[in-house]
Nucleic acid binder design. Structure first.
Lengths: 202, 202
DNA sequence: CCTACCGATCGGTAGG
DNA sequence: CCTACCGATCGGTAGG
């Protein structure tokens, strides 16, 4: 029924898998089961389709991520929040792949989106970490913004390529499958590199 | 004089910046200053050109990285090795971008390359970390292979997108420029999430 | 290393 | 949402 939504779904998947330049309008139309000019009736150009795909992805992120990040203020909630953040990406690796591709393909455009949607959260988190540092809860040598960037990079890029890493990070009866091992180590690295050590941990 | 080398250099740059599908043979020929059929005399197809670009990049990595990684055995040398590893990528972000793009575009092919060239080093590092764990030098909850994957992901993906992150991670008189802040925090996160804490640190 | 040229596919439009 | 069609560009070849 809702053809527009079908087009967006297939376009998202194909752009994520093959890239924007590696995907033809014909290919997307075939996946939906309509003719190419019919697709171009719903989206006036391939570029307009790309912008709608990104807007849909961004809308979903803005509906979910702020709630997640606001909870990360205290150490107590850190693990749960990181787990939720990791699960958010792992749940649909295509989102992470698309995000990474757009960052590589259109750096200036992505710079604008980062400034509008990611920057505020990095600043908020940075302020919280600076305060935690003064209280001695967080390591004194942490660079809050840089830390946030490293963790986001690990989460997004790690999820985008995780299926390719099966050989290097195989399923292990003692440690879980590839995705579990990635998610657990991501959280462990993020956590243990942030907080000062004390007997109360773990 | 050496036209083949000129072609490879320009192709590497353009593939890294715009992707394989986003770059035409014509565009590469223009950059070199020859006609398209002349380029296709040196490389029989666009695909053959891509394979040569990758082979050249891999040859360079295999000449430099093993020496770097072999030094990372003791904690004492850890910082110097991580710094060299980080500088290796930062020195030419196009290499990191190309590597990331190929991982997204051709996952099966990249899986083979990872198995041949990266897997052995991850295994070696894994063995060293397991031994260090038994000696109490390394945190008991580290998953050595997963740890290696997270650090490599941070180094490669971080370098690939670093120029786009200027807004989020601006130059700071007290903390250095964007690249410095990324490199320093990468090393700090990798180091502090690996070793157990003791008075001798820092 | 060049000129001249190929069929196939690209994104997009006219008109219904 | 379709058929029919457009000019431009794609990777690649013939022949010198």
């Amino acid at each position: 029924m809702d053809v527009r939504h079908q087009i967006l779904t297939h376009a998202t998947r194909l752009f994520a898998e093959q890239g924007y330049d590696g995907t033809s309008v014909q290919e997307i139309a075939d996946a939906v089961g309509i003719r190419k000019p019919s697709l171009l009736y719903h989206f006036r150009s391939k570029d307009a389709l790309r912008e709608n795909v990104l807007a849909e992805m961004l809308a979903h992120w803005n509906a979910v991520l702020p709630g997640l990040l606001l909870k990360a203020s205290t150490e107590e909630r850190f693990d749960a929040t990181m787990r939720a953040l990791s699960e958010f990406f792992i749940e649909d690796p295509d989102r992470a792949r698309l995000f990474l591709r757009e960052t590589l393909d259109r750096p200036e455009q992505m710079q604008g989106m980062l400034a509008r949607f990611v920057q505020p959260w990095v600043e908020l988190l940075g302020g919280q970490l600076e305060r935690a540092k003064r209280q001695g809860l967080v390591r004194p040598d942490v660079d809050p913004q840089a830390y946030a960037v490293e963790v986001i990079t690990m989460a997004v890029a790690g999820t985008a390529v995780i299926d390719t890493l099966q050989t290097i990070l195989p399923d292990d009866p003692a440690r879980g499958n590839t995705r579990t091992r990635h998610a657990r180590e991501l959280i462990r690295v993020a956590r243990s590199s942030l907080y000062t050590e004390n007997e109360g941990d773990n």
